[in-house]
Computed example of a mutant assay.
Amino acid sequence: MTFYSKIIGTGSYLPPKKVSNQELTDQLAAKGIETSDEWIFSRSGISFRHYAEPSVAVSDLAVEAAKRALDAARMQANDIDLIVLATSTPDFLGGFPSTACVVQNKLGITNGGAAVDVQAVCSGFMYAMSIADSMIKAGNHKNVLVIGAEVFSRILNFEDRTTCVLFGDGAGAIVMSRSEEPGVLATKLHADGSYANILCVPGNVQSGVVEGSAFLYMDGQAVFKLAVNLLEKVANEALEIAGLTTDQIDWLVPHQANIRIMQSTAKKMRMPMDRVVVTVDQHGNTSAASIPLALDLAVRDGRVQPGHTVMLEGVGGGFTWGAAIVKM
């Protein structure tokens, strides 16, 4: 018997605290760091970002997004038999217990289904989706909750204007279920650890003390050049696997890192920007959460319709990158 997987519900959540470029500029100016709304927007396309309050865990954001995805899928929490959660900012040091297990408990899932975290930074959601697709197609699971959730504000150095203005917090989720007809048409993942040093948090814990830096570091120019080339290549690989051309893609939903990366990728793919879902202006780079956040917005505002063919793609620290093509 052949199994297929299909996205049947989407959801997202942004914490209420919304910070504009001007507000952030004013806060940085108090520290003697010069920037401006125009400087941030012209280089990134970002106007706002959301920050979680100190008492709010990444699992709390994930739960809110998951509930909305479950509602959209018309499912109860106990219908879920696997949670795959992508995050680089887990609830607990060392990543255990996994944030996926914490989310399972907070959702009240008591059926003994599996739960696991995935760490591929900004490509994490692509990795999580691919794992869920494979599990469903193998017949091991029927209903999978795939989540990307981050609280990147907690690993930002607010004395480094090249990074602190770019990132925000949020969560996005989808429900993937067994289907009689193909939904996920292709997935393709890659990694190259030789680029680990251009986007990383270069610290570790020794005897309860952080050695190195606990803040995000990024070589922006190196990441930009690499990202544009890799996103084009993996998009073409996914198209080949699916047997499709760019003209047959209704919407491109890329990782919302930087408007310039998205514009350059779309240009290389000969895809007009009016077919690219852009939300980076409203929430900045939310790492593993950005793709499901953008997808959910486009579903809820009516752009992405049932039957549309959508390409999702992301690139992130590791270096990791991946793409998926889905029939909604």
Rank of each mutant, 00 (worst) to 15 (best):
residue 120 A to Q: 12
residue 156 L to D: 03
residue 203 G to Q: 07
residue 232 E to F: 14
residue 141 H to E: 10
residue 145 L to M: 07
residue 156 L to M: 05
residue 203 G to K: 02
residue 146 V to R: 00
residue 128 A to C: 07
residue 135 M to F: 10
residue 239 L to H: 00
residue 119 Q to W: 13
residue 181 E to W: 14
residue 248 Q to F: 12
residue 117 D to G: 03
residue 187 T to Y: 06
residue 178 R to H: 10
residue 131 I to N: 06
residue 150 E to Q: 02
residue 200 C to N: 11
residue 240 E to M: 15
residue 135 M to C: 11
residue 159 E to M: 10
residue 125 F to L: 08
residue 167 F to K: 03
residue 144 V to K: 02
residue 217 Y to F: 11
residue 170 G to N: 09
residue 104 Q to L: 13
residue 237 E to L: 11
residue 233 K to V: 13
residue 210 V to W: 08
residue 229 N to T: 10
residue 126 M to Y: 05
residue 229 N to A: 12
residue 119 Q to S: 09
residue 117 D to F: 03
residue 184 V to A: 02
residue 183 G to S: 07
residue 106 K to E: 06
residue 201 V to H: 01
residue 102 V to T: 14
residue 121 V to F: 08
residue 136 I to A: 04
residue 214 A to N: 12
residue 231 L to R: 04
residue 136 I to W: 04
residue 120 A to T: 15
residue 199 L to V: 12
residue 187 T to P: 01
residue 166 L to D: 08
residue 143 N to M: 00
residue 150 E to K: 01
residue 163 T to K: 04
residue 138 A to C: 11
residue 194 S to Y: 08
residue 242 A to S: 03
residue 228 V to L: 07
residue 124 G to N: 04
residue 201 V to Y: 00
residue 115 A to F: 01
residue 177 S to R: 07
residue 207 S to P: 03
residue 103 V to E: 01
residue 134 S to C: 12
residue 216 L to G: 00
residue 226 L to H: 06
residue 217 Y to W: 08
residue 105 N to R: 13
residue 198 I to A: 10
residue 180 E to M: 07
residue 180 E to S: 10
residue 108 G to P: 05
residue 195 Y to Q: 09
residue 210 V to E: 11
residue 242 A to L: 03
residue 235 A to V: 11
residue 174 I to V: 15
residue 226 L to Q: 13
residue 161 R to D: 11
residue 235 A to P: 09
residue 177 S to I: 10
residue 111 N to M: 12
residue 160 D to A: 06
residue 217 Y to P: 02
residue 181 E to L: 15
residue 229 N to S: 14
residue 174 I to M: 11
residue 147 I to N: 04
residue 166 L to T: 03
residue 200 C to S: 08
residue 221 Q to M: 10
residue 167 F to W: 00
residue 112 G to T: 03
residue 242 A to Q: 03
residue 155 I to K: 04
residue 244 L to E: 08
residue 104 Q to A: 09
residue 229 N to P: 06
residue 118 V to G: 09
residue 202 P to K: 12
residue 159 E to S: 13
residue 192 D to M: 13
residue 142 K to L: 03
residue 229 N to K: 11
residue 160 D to Y: 00
residue 110 T to R: 06
residue 225 K to S: 10
residue 167 F to M: 02
residue 105 N to W: 08
residue 167 F to I: 01
residue 147 I to R: 00
residue 242 A to R: 00
residue 227 A to C: 06
residue 123 S to K: 04
residue 205 V to E: 11
residue 103 V to N: 00
residue 170 G to Y: 06
residue 147 I to C: 01
residue 114 A to R: 09
residue 194 S to P: 08
residue 157 N to E: 05
residue 148 G to Y: 02
residue 168 G to T: 07
residue 120 A to K: 09
residue 164 C to T: 08
residue 102 V to L: 10
residue 211 E to A: 14
residue 183 G to A: 07
residue 156 L to N: 04
residue 120 A to Y: 13
residue 117 D to I: 02
residue 125 F to W: 14
residue 244 L to F: 15
residue 164 C to A: 06
residue 147 I to E: 02
residue 219 D to H: 15
